[in-house]
Nucleic acid binder design. Structure first.
Lengths: 152, 152
DNA sequence: CCGTATCCGAAAAGATACTG
DNA sequence: CAGTATCTTTTCGGATACGG
């Protein structure tokens, strides 16, 4: 087969059970988050938002990503209109990926979440510690492992 | 063993590779999104944000969730300080889950994404159609299935 | 250089019987 | 009622050899 053929077919079924009017919103959020879910989407958006990036360039800059996942994530983002793919018919081939304006907007919206994270940093830490404690209490009976690392 | 013992240990390692100053933001977003990732967190937050909800109540209202996933997701949200769990020592037992103020804030921030989704609804659809076309072109050689359902 | 195909292990999720 | 334990299925992600 020619090229460009890794699956990337799903991601249309997000309709699901969005019956109640209030749940509509939640579903919309769910669909939006689905577009940038996965381990790598944010990282790729981060790079492509700063300007056009080539395949190999992304492979270098997004630390730890494999070829396969890079391709998959690029295809998904492209399908969702968050990335444009430009092929220069040179030899050797050159392909550039750039975040669309729509993607930049989305990325900005997401960055707003850092505000939330900073405001509640301590609260978040406390919660995990507290959870470790109550979980320990509730488990007074057994002394297996698996609990040691929780608070630590 | 007593109770409250489904794993729920991970979700501490989100440090990862956040070296460059620009990537710091992305990592923060990543950590935040991790808290509400998964198929069910949003749905549960939606319900618990409207007021206290009991276990069985959630099982009914969050359509399609299994007992196991409900428990797991509740534990995760509780660990992250997004949900409080209140036990009434009655018989039969009664347990209520409520979204914390912090969770409400986060949920509101996320709802802001519906704005993005609405603004770009058409753009998003167009993108998927366009992707279907170019993918079809690039695949002129083969006439397997799997492509039929893409645009449809 | 820019990918794809294939194989594999790990993790997420579903189903459901069982229990204090 | 509010979970837990266990099993199975599904999906995700890593490694890597190969191809235009």
């Amino acid at each position: 087969m020619s090229q460009r053929n890794i699956d990337v077919t799903p991601q249309v079924s997000a309709a699901e059970v969005c019956e109640t009017p209030a749940a509509q919103e939640a579903c919309s959020v769910l669909e939006t988050l689905a577009r940038i879910s996965g381990k790598w989407s944010i990282g790729i958006l981060l790079v492509t938002t700063q300007g056009p990036a080539r395949f190999t360039e992304l492979e270098r800059e997004v630390k730890g990503i494999s070829r396969r996942m890079l391709t998959l994530t690029l295809r998904n983002l492209e399908r969702d209109g968050l990335l444009t793919r430009t092929v220069y018919p040179t030899v050797p081939p050159k392909v550039e990926y750039t975040a669309t304006p729509m993607a930049r907007e989305l990325y900005d919206s997401l960055l707003a979440l850092t505000g939330w994270a900073e405001r509640h940093r301590h609260e978040i830490d406390d919660a995990r510690v507290a959870y470790g404690r109550t979980a320990a209490e509730a488990t007074q009976s057994r002394n297996h492992l698996a609990l040691a690392g929780r608070v630590a």
